[in-house]
């Protein structure tokens, strides 16, 4: 077990260094990736700010609370962008071209090879934006000491849940001619999750919390951080994380059975 973990860590280290060298050979793209995310983060926060110039609250939250929520979501987004996002786009291509074959014959877990191989080192730099943003708005809303301690775990928890759901959804690519459609669904779900759960009508809210729990990704942890007596969303988050991890394993195996491997 220990040696297996060591092996995977050392493989992951190699992913990091290879991704870094590969990214370095395209400097223009490297810079643009960073800029692209920054433009997104900035316009998102500014939009909320402009909105609050004309109103006092949305639902239960005022300007600072919603901006704190938004910055937590952006932090989760930034970690996803750095560590996994690229792989979701490569995966359907590798199914369509049959490049997945190479991952399948390696003596390493194929889910790991498919979703963690490519890292965007450039996006890592954006932590310089999302990190301070979270801290700044955290100070503005006056987080309790307990909340500060829990903050990193909340962000990581949201990140894990988001990707467990997305990897699970990506298994559907095995059955589709062109799986990029799933990627559009992923992006849409992220868009839905980017706003607090209480803005949605009841039916939509409960299905996105209890069936496909994308609203738990950010709303769960942030509700807890803002009011540490409201711990239930966090329990749900952990529960769903386990559930989707199991589902992923199951559907991945089912998907491999259906995989036809493109003929050369």
């Amino acid at each position: 077990m220990g040696s297996r973990i060591k092996q995977y860590l050392s493989i992951y280290g190699s992913f990091f260094s290879t991704s870094f060298s590969a990214a370095m050979s395209f400097r223009g793209h490297f810079v643009l990736l960073i800029l692209m995310d920054l433009v997104f983060y900035y316009t998102h926060l500014v939009s909320i700010d402009i909105l609050y110039d004309h109103i006092q609250t949305i639902g239960i939250w005022d300007r600072q609370q919603l901006l704190f929520f938004a910055s937590v979501m952006l932090a989760i987004n930034q970690i996803s962008m750095t560590l996994v996002s690229e792989n979701y786009w490569i995966f359907p291509l590798s199914i369509r071209t049959g490049e997945l074959d190479f991952s399948l014959i390696k003596p390493v877990n194929a889910v790991f090879l498919s979703f963690f191989r490519i890292i965007r080192p450039g996006s890592l730099i954006n932590v310089c934006f999302t990190g301070p943003a979270v801290v700044y708005f955290g100070l503005q809303v006056g987080l309790s000491p307990l909340a500060w301690v829990c903050l990193p775990f909340a962000v990581v928890g949201g990140f894990l849940l988001q990707n467990a759901i997305e990897m699970f959804l990506s298994c559907a690519m095995f059955w589709m001619m062109d799986g990029t459609g799933i990627n559009f669904i992923r992006v849409e779900l992220q868009q839905l999750a980017r706003w607090p759960d209480f803005v949605y009508p009841r039916l939509l809210r409960s299905s996105l919390t209890l069936v496909l729990p994308v609203l738990l990704i950010g709303s769960g942890p942030v509700r807890f951080l803002l009011d540490p007596t409201d711990g239930w969303p966090l329990v749900w988050l952990v529960g769903f994380l386990g559930l989707f991890w199991l589902l992923l394993g199951f559907f991945w195996r089912l998907g491999l059975k259906a995989y036809e491997s493109a003929s050369s």
Binding site: L51, I55, Q56, T57, I58, G59, Q191, L192, W195, F198, V199, Y200, P201, L204
Partner: peptide, 12 residues
Amino acid sequence: VKLSLWYRVYEG
């Protein structure tokens, strides 16, 4: 998203 958001905005 927009309709939901604006609905809540007008509520307040």
